[in-house]
C-alpha cells in the first residue's frame, strides 16, 4: 500500500503553464511559480491583492466580461493568440529569433465550483504558444505569397491567364445574377514579332512590361487586367456598357501607342489593336464573351491594325473569314 502523495500543493509549481486563481472580486488566491518567475510578484506578494492593482495594463473591461461569463455560465471561456496575442506582457524565450515583443498566449478561464455547486473561483491558465504562433504566421505569409505568385504573370505583374479567367467567370456569374453590364477588351501588340526580331527579346519584354504598366495606371480600380497570351492582354470592365467600353478602349489605345517605349538607347514605337464586346441582359457565358472579343480583335487586325473594333460592328461573313484565318 503506497502512502498518499504528501506534496500535492507543490505540483502546481511544476506545471509548465501559468496558473492562478481569482475570486469574483479579482482578488488573487493562488499564483504558481511559472507566473512568479515571469513578473515581479511572488505568490506571497500577490495572494490577497487585487489583480488589476498589480497589473494595471490588463484589458480590464474585457477581462471582467470573461470572468463574469465563467461565473454565470459555469463553463470555461477562452482566449487565443490569433485574436489577442497576449494577456500578460511576459518575456519569451526567443528574444533573438522571435521577432515578437511578448510571449504569445492561449488562455483558459475555468470555473471552480464550491460545495453548493456555485462558482466560487475562476482558475486562469496561461500557455506559451510563441513557437506555434511564429511558425503559423510564417506559414500564413508564405501561403499568401504563393497565392500571389500563382495568380500573377511574372514578367508584367498583372494577373496571369488562369487567374484572370477565374475573376472574369465570377464577374459574369454576378452579371447574370444582378443584371449589371460588364464589358470585355482584348488587345494585341501590333507586329510584336518584328520588335523581338529587330531589337531582341529583352526589348520585347520591356515593351510588354511598359504596356501593362501604362494600362494599370490608366484603368479604374475595379477594372481587371490579365495577360492572356504572349503579347495579348485582356481587361474586363465591371458596370460598363458598350458605349463606355468603346470610349475606354480608344483612350487606352492612345495611352499605349502615343508615347514610344524607351529601352536603353532605343526608341520603339508601338501600336495595339483592340477588340471589345459587352454583356447582354441575361444568360451570358464568359467563354462566349471572350471569343467575341477575340473575333473583334482579329477584325481590328484585318482592317489594318492600330484601331478598336466592337464585336457588334463585325459582320457575320467577316467573322467567319477571320475565324478561318485566325492563326496569326
Amino acid at each position: 500500500m503506497i502512502n498518499k502523495f504528501p506534496y500535492p500543493n507543490n505540483v502546481i509549481d511544476c506545471v509548465d503553464s501559468g496558473v492562478f486563481v481569482i475570486d469574483k472580486n479579482f482578488t488573487v488566491h493562488l499564483w504558481n511559480d511559472y507566473m512568479t518567475i515571469r513578473c515581479q510578484f511572488s505568490s506571497d506578494d500577490i495572494v490577497g491583492l487585487n489583480l488589476f492593482d498589480c497589473f494595471p495594463e490588463l484589458p480590464q473591461k474585457w477581462f471582467k466580461r470573461k470572468i463574469k461569463s465563467v461565473f454565470l455560465l459555469k463553463s470555461p471561456s477562452y482566449s487565443a493568440w490569433e485574436q489577442r496575442a497576449y494577456l500578460f506582457k511576459f518575456p519569451h524565450g526567443r528574444s533573438v529569433t522571435g521577432g515578437v515583443d511578448f510571449m504569445y498566449q492561449n488562455c483558459c478561464f475555468t470555473p471552480i465550483l464550491g460545495q453548493d455547486n456555485n462558482v466560487e473561483y475562476a482558475c486562469i491558465t496561461i500557455k506559451d504558444v510563441t513557437d506555434i504562433a511564429i511558425a503559423t504566421i510564417k506559414l500564413k505569409n508564405t501561403v499568401m505569397e504563393l497565392e500571389r505568385i500563382s495568380s500573377i504573370d511574372g514578367l508584367t505583374q498583372v494577373y496571369n491567364r488562369s487567374h484572370w479567367e477565374k475573376c472574369f467567370q465570377n464577374e459574369v456569374d454576378r452579371v447574370n445574377r444582378y443584371d449589371h453590364p460588364v464589358s470585355l477588351l482584348m488587345f494585341d501588340m501590333d507586329f510584336f514579332k518584328k520588335i523581338n526580331d529587330k531589337y531582341g527579346h529583352l526589348c520585347g519584354d520591356e515593351v510588354l512590361r511598359q504596356t501593362a504598366k501604362r494600362c494599370t495606371e490608366s484603368l479604374r480600380s475595379a477594372d481587371v487586367i490579365g495577360r492572356y497570351g504572349g503579347e495579348e492582354f485582356c481587361i474586363f470592365l465591371p458596370e460598363t456598357d458598350l458605349a463606355d467600353a468603346a470610349h475606354i478602349a480608344e483612350k487606352l489605345r492612345h495611352i499605349i501607342s502615343d508615347t514610344p517605349i524607351y529601352y536603353n538607347s532605343l526608341v520603339v514605337s508601338i501600336s495595339v489593336s483592340i477588340g471589345f464586346t459587352s454583356s447582354r441582359s441575361t444568360k451570358n457565358n464568359y467563354e462566349k464573351l471572350i471569343s467575341e472579343a477575340d473575333t473583334a480583335l482579329y477584325a481590328a487586325k484585318n482592317n489594318g491594325r492600330a484601331q478598336c473594333v466592337s464585336f457588334f460592328d463585325c459582320d457575320v461573313t467577316q467573322q467567319r473569314a477571320i475565324a478561318y484565318h485566325s492563326n496569326f
Binding site: 461569463s69 455560465l73 463553463s75 470555461p76 471561456s77 477562452y78 482566449s79 485574436q83 489577442r84
Partner: peptide, 18 residues
C-alpha cells in the same frame, strides 16, 4: 478583424456552452 473574430468566438462559446 481580430476583434470580429473574438466576438464570434466569444458568442459561440457562450451559446455552445449554455
Amino acid at each position: 478583424f481580430e476583434v470580429e473574430q473574438e466576438i464570434l468566438l466569444e458568442i459561440s462559446n457562450i451559446i455552445n456552452g449554455a
